[in-house]
């Protein structure tokens, strides 16, 4: 037991150290991609709260990612002197509230109903973003104008520098991942997994199934919004592509390809996805075909995703614990 614990602490320290020195080892192009992988990781992990832990398939998660991204722009644009970190938080809260409203209608229904409803609400929110041109810029998109960031003890940071954006993104993503993990370990977080395994029994024991699911949905929305805010901060530009159905399916791909059965599977999935859009698209214009084939093969033969393909010995060393999702 203590042995495992030491190993875990050691692993965490190594990973943290690696993340700190990474910018000094990578080229700027690679660093840009590391940032993208970081916020997409958070997005995919938030999605996996639904798919892996909640056991429900959503086709509308981009709605919250996009809401977060747009609110990041609004916060910095319309509130004079808005500091960066509160703006990120505001974006997350806006996305979380949106998710709570949509979730109120969706989580009562399971299976295919849930999938369709989330898709339809995604379209509705997309339509609002498209129509409300004075606010969102419609399909032209809207630019984000950065200002410097002040941190106590550190001073002013140049937010145009890729280094700053990298550290900011990685720190926020790590904190978010830690919070999600922490929540899942709390007794309340445990009920969520319980609900997934057997809804009727959970209700019988006395859990409020509706509330558990709604909390999970809202939380997934909140963290998707944080990821969206980081996306907006990195891109300095937000358009409807961050809120449309294609983005919703991309996050499904990320989470499932990486592996819904473990906490960090979606992180791997985000990296694989970026890999596809970056390198495979250079080799063939039909990269989406190969992505689809990989997705279907994994569904058929390895439904714990790529992380499930890693030979047991290696995996056991890294992360002995994994969620029950996807284990069959």
């Amino acid at each position: 037991m203590t042995h495992t614990r030491t190993k875990n602490v050691l692993t965490v320290l190594i990973v943290l150290a690696a993340l700190v020195v990474l910018p000094y080892l990578l080229t700027e192009v690679q660093l840009n991609m590391a940032i993208e992988i970081a916020f997409f990781s958070l997005f995919a992990v938030s999605y996996n709260l639904l798919l892996g832990y909640g056991g429900v398939l959503s086709f509308g998660h981009a709605a919250y990612f996009g809401t977060g991204a747009y609110f990041m722009v609004f916060a910095l644009k319309y509130v004079a002197g808005m500091p960066i970190l509160p703006a990120v938080l505001v974006s997350g809260v806006a996305a979380g509230l949106t998710a709570a409203i949509v979730g109120f209608f969706c989580v009562r229904l399971g299976g295919s109903y849930f999938a369709l409803l989330t898709l339809a609400f995604n379209q509705l929110i997309y339509a609002i973003a498209l129509k409300w041109r004075s606010l969102t810029g419609g399909d032209d998109g809207i630019g984000l104008d950065k200002h410097d960031m002040y941190l106590p003890f550190v001073g002013n940071l140049d937010t145009m520098s890729t280094f700053t954006v990298y550290y900011l993104t990685v720190i926020i993503v790590l904190i978010s991942l830690w919070l999600i993990r922490f929540f899942l370990k709390t007794p309340y977080g445990n009920t969520v997994a319980c609900v997934k395994d057997n809804e009727e029994r959970a209700a019988f024991i006395g859990y409020n199934v509706f509330r558990s699911k709604l909390v999970l949905f809202t939380m997934a929305g909140f963290f998707a919004g944080i990821a969206g805010a980081l996306f907006a901060f990195f891109e300095e530009f937000v358009s409807l592509d961050s809120i449309n159905m294609a983005m919703s399916t991309e996050v499904l791909f990320m989470a499932f390809i990486g592996g819904t059965g473990s906490f960090l599977g979606p992180v791997l999935g985000a990296a694989v996805f970026i890999y596809f859009t970056e390198w495979v698209s250079d080799i063939t214009e039909h990269w989406e075909f190969f992505l689809g084939v990989l997705f279907v093969l994994l569904i058929l033969y390895a439904n714990r995703g790529i992380i499930g393909l890693i030979p047991e010995k290696i995996k056991n060393f890294w992360s002995p614990r994994s969620a029950s999702a996807g284990e069959r």
């Binding site: 798919l51 056991g55 429900v56 398939l57 086709f59 399971g110 299976g111 295919s112 999938a115 399916t249 499904l252 499932f256 039909h286 989406e288 075909f289 992505l291 689809g292 084939v293 997705f295 279907v296 569904i299 058929l300 439904n303 069959r328």
Partner: peptide, 19 residues
């Protein structure tokens, strides 16, 4: 494997066929 897998599979097929 259940509904979610059937849905994902048919979606994957949609994606591949479109390509």
């Amino acid at each position: 494997f259940g509904h979610a897998h059937e849905l994902m599979l048919t979606f994957g097929i949609f994606y591949i066929l479109a390509e």
